[in-house]
């Protein structure tokens, strides 16, 4: 396919750049929050749960009303 309309790379850069910055910033904030909390948990001597791991005895039924 030939490009009858050229240009627009600046918009592409803007769009990709903005997406990268926003999502990257969010991921960075996730990692930073995770690190801070993990440190606080270690200080209090509590095992740190892994991502996706359920908390112990987290009520699965209607028991923790």
């Amino acid at each position: 396919m030939s490009a009858s309309v050229t240009g627009g790379w600046d918009y592409v850069a803007g769009g990709y750049g903005a997406t990268t910055v926003l999502l990257g910033g969010y991921v960075a904030s996730l990692l930073r929050r995770r690190r801070v909390l993990a440190r606080r948990l270690r200080v209090s001597g509590t095992p740190v749960p892994a991502a996706g791991e359920a908390l112990p005895a987290d009520g699965a039924g209607g028991d923790d009303r």
Partner: peptide, 16 residues
């Protein structure tokens, strides 16, 4: 490739 109608900006379709 770039698009005939939108040029290079069609690449935003892979993000938006």
């Amino acid at each position: 490739p770039p698009d005939g109608l939108q040029g290079e900006t069609v690449r935003l379709i892979y993000v938006h």
